[in-house]
């Protein structure tokens, strides 16, 4: 894989839930090490889009190429892509019956075939990086929401992904915990990770994003640098959305 080839290519992607057209001709490219923030009102298809990138949802038309591999029904291609694409969910989705350490080491051991002690030292490194190494022996239910989300980030990083997807990572958190998660994500961005984040945190978008994509009713309405998007929105839909978001904050 050369460094010049784009990390993610979406080409006229379409998806329907029954008669509902949830993604309409979505076309965009995410370059290596690019940080993209996807925003839009609820029901605009932004979560569906990000979930199509690691095929938690299947698209019905168009092409999605991740790191040079096209997403099809071919399971081997899917395995490769999921190994290289990490995902963080709104509701954390940690495994409640496993300790924090086991949450982090399970996939490296069984998918990457990493020796157990190597996986554990990697997990401890990453838990240290998200600043909760002392919780390693605890169960997810014993941690706060912010701590759980940081574990979820560490768990995804343990697979040494090339691309990280974030699906509204702070939406389920209490306000005082949002910062600790965002700080972790900012740190990750500074290290050069390719990131696609669905989020309403406009401050985060300003600080980190190379590009912001605004979606509404299943299509990309506007995209550009955070400065251009927030200071001089071109479309009425984005103006309306921004005014609602800013009023809420």
């Amino acid at each position: 894989m050369s460094d010049t080839q784009p990390a993610i290519v979406l080409d006229k992607v379409n998806k329907w839930y029954g008669p509902m057209h949830v993604l309409r001709d979505v076309t965009t490219t995410v370059g290596q090490k690019e940080k993209v923030v996807v925003c839009g009102p609820s029901g605009s298809g932004k979560s569906t889009l990000i979930r199509c990138i690691n095929r938690l949802e299947t698209h019905q038309q168009g092409r999605i190429i991740v790191d040079g591999t096209e997403l099809t029904d071919d399971l081997r291609a899917l395995d490769t892509i999921r190994r290289d694409v990490g995902m963080v969910f709104q509701s954390f989705n940690l495994f409640p019956h496993l300790t924090i350490l086991e949450n982090c080491t399970l996939a490296p051991i069984w998918v990457r075939k990493m020796p157990k002690d190597e996986a554990e030292s990697l997990a401890m490194d990453l838990l240290t990086r998200v600043k909760i190494p002392e919780q390693a022996k605890k169960y997810p239910g014993q941690l706060s929401g912010g701590q759980q989300q940081r574990v979820a980030i560490a768990r995804a990083l343990c697979m040494k992904p090339k691309i990280m997807l974030f699906d509204e990572p702070t939406s389920a958190l209490d306000p005082e915990m949002i910062k600790e998660v965002l700080d972790t994500m900012i740190g990750l961005a500074e290290e050069g990770m390719t990131m696609v984040c669905v989020t309403h945190e406009m401050g985060f978008a300003r600080q980190v994003a190379d590009r912001v994509i605004f979606m509404d009713r299943g299509e990309i309405v506007e995209s550009g640098s955070p400065h251009a998007m927030f200071e001089s929105p071109q479309t009425d839909r984005l103006k309306l959305f921004l005014s609602q978001i800013l009023r809420g904050h």
Binding site: R83, G86, F89, N93, F95, L98, L106, A107, V111
Partner: peptide, 25 residues
Amino acid sequence: KGQYEAADSLGLSYWHKMGFIILPQ
């Protein structure tokens, strides 16, 4: 559903997903 999705997104195979994540719970 999130438990299935988290296991999928980590690239676990069907039997690993069932054996380690889904069935124990």
